[in-house]
């Protein structure tokens, strides 16, 4: 699914990623944990193609193709989805028009005909139910005036609409109360299957009680310093990041 080899990236001349190696197979869920400033969000931004970052070394193969050579929208149509830590408000652009443009861009990429209005609204209804997203929110401008929890649910709703192969959830748990966290996690779990994969980026172990990872990676100072099973997150909960230096 995804193969990251020796990935280095900078922002404004400062190196943030210093040689990331990661293999993600179909059906797997990987958690990436680490202290603030370790490069977690940079990794997700680089994979999504955020133009603020520059890749200086390394390669990323996504479903057999060179990911880094694709424009951000092509990466998305190929099945890469980023759930933003801070979803962007877009006043005046309705959720419906936004999602229709996104879904039909992907369908065109796959050689499928565009959905007509009826089919599209039916799809919206079905997917909305998955994250208990209010119909009124779907009628509003993208993320405008949404609460923190509604924004995160809206991200998972969009993920459900686009059915990506690889979903990267960037700090999806931040700013969520326990009920919203449960709804979001259940949505993610329902969407997970043998053919797709999920990367969960989080600072805290809490989310991993709900989305159980197959692998946990610890990112520190731009490198993955440890990899283990789900028990690594629990260990981390007890020892803290300070106890998990490179020497281990």
């Amino acid at each position: 699914m995804l193969e990251i080899r020796n990935l280095h990236a900078t922002i404004a001349g400062k190196e943030i990623l210093k040689g990331i190696n990661l293999h993600i197979g179909a059906g797997e869920t990987h958690a990436i944990m680490g202290p603030n400033g370790a490069g977690k969000s940079t990794l997700s931004a680089v994979l999504a193609g955020n133009p603020a970052y520059t890749v200086t070394e390394g390669e990323v193969i996504f479903r057999g193709k060179n990911l880094l050579r694709m424009a951000p929208e092509v990466r998305a149509r190929e099945g890469l989805f980023l759930s933003f830590q801070y979803p962007v408000e877009i006043p005046g652009v309705s959720m419906t028009n936004f999602m229709r443009a996104a879904v039909n861009a992907k369908r065109e990429h796959e050689g499928k005909p565009a959905l007509n209005a009826g089919e599209f609204l039916k799809l919206m209804r079905a997917k909305r139910a998955l994250v208990e997203l209010d119909n009124k929110l779907a009628g509003r401008s993208v993320n405008e005036g949404f609460s923190g929890g509604e924004k995160k649910r809206n991200e998972i709703f969009q993920m459900a609409m686009l059915e990506p192969c690889l979903s990267i959830l960037d700090e999806t748990d931040s700013g969520l109360d326990i009920d919203a966290l449960r709804i979001v996690a259940e949505g993610v779990n329902k969407l997970h299957n043998e053919t797709n994969a999920t990367i969960v980026i989080t600072h805290y172990q809490r989310l991993l009680d709900y989305i159980v990872p197959d692998y946990v990676h610890i990112l520190a100072d731009g490198q993955i310093v440890r990899t283990g099973g789900k028990e690594l997150a629990l260990e981390l909960e007890q020892t803290g990041y300070a106890g998990l230096g490179k020497s281990e």
Binding site: A48, G49, N50, P51, A71, P72, E73, R75, A76, R77, F81, L82, F84, P87, V88, E89, I90, F98, M99, A101, A102, A105, K106, H109, Q158, L162
Partner: peptide, 11 residues
């Protein structure tokens, strides 16, 4: 906003 929309596949 532009990047957000691109990340959803919109040119």
């Amino acid at each position: 906003a532009l990047f957000y929309m691109q990340q959803r596949g919109i040119a």
